[in-house]
């Protein structure tokens, strides 16, 4: 088992209705110098979260005690830019287990699925409903049900289904990763490699 299993997550959410949140914002390059995967959550959204002297920026959402939870709700085109998996690590390490957006950048989505952070893509309308629900009540709970592929705003019952390919879904539910799968098919890979012209 490579990471924590994911089945049903019921939690409040942190809203970040900004579009094109790129991975340089999620974790700036100067914090990528570790050779181990730990502590990245401390620098999550570093330059949005802290002033240059290290004091917290009061108006940034993660510094507002009213908002908390294991779900991060972000604007359209979340996770664009650099392929750094550190972005997904930082979000996970901070304590989030699920990111909801109306659109994800490809590499970020793959990276998240590979470490057990669930990216849930919803319609722009549903995302807007989530933002409005949290605005009305920061304690609004959201349920992400992976087996049923359904996301629900608990207070209102509003819900939407989301897509995930069957293979990745099984992996997330069981906590398996691709490396486990690939190790089990090494004979096939070896045969294939034997025919390669490169």
């Amino acid at each position: 088992m490579a990471y924590d299993k994911f089945t049903v997550l019921k939690s409040t959410a942190v809203p970040m209705p900004i579009e094109n949140v790129d991975t340089d914002q999620i974790i700036p390059a100067r914090f990528l110098k570790a050779t181990e995967r730990k502590g990245f959550g401390d620098n999550l959204f570093r330059d949005w979260r802290y002033n240059s002297d290290g004091s917290p920026k009061k108006d940034f959402i993660l510094n507002n005690p009213v908002y908390s939870g294991k779900i991060l709700a972000g604007g359209k085109n979340f996770g664009s830019g650099s392929s750094r998996e550190h972005a997904a690590w930082a979000i996970y390490d901070y304590g989030f287990r699920c990111v909801v957006s109306s659109f994800f950048a490809d590499i970020f989505k793959n990276n998240s699925l590979n470490i057990g952070l669930l990216p849930v893509q919803v319609s722009a309308e549903f995302l807007d409903k989530i933002f409005k629900a949290i605005e009305a009540d920061p304690k609004t709970e959201i349920e992400v049900n992976l087996p049923q592929q359904k996301i629900t705003i608990i207070a209102t019952g509003e819900n939407e289904s989301f897509e995930i390919n069957g293979y990745k879904k099984e992996n997330m539910i069981n906590g398996y990763d691709d490396i486990d799968y690939l190790q089990a098919m090494k004979d096939d890979i070896q045969k294939f490699a034997g025919q390669s012209i490169y």
């Binding site: 392929s83 590499i107 690939l182 190790q183 890979i189």
Partner: peptide, 22 residues
């Protein structure tokens, strides 16, 4: 194309990655 670190580990250990076809 670019990949994440989990995928770097996949390529090192199996010379393959798992990708939905774009």
């Amino acid at each position: 194309f670019g990949i994440g670190t989990s995928e770097v580990e996949m390529v090192l250990s199996s010379q393959c990655i798992m990708q939905p076809k774009p």
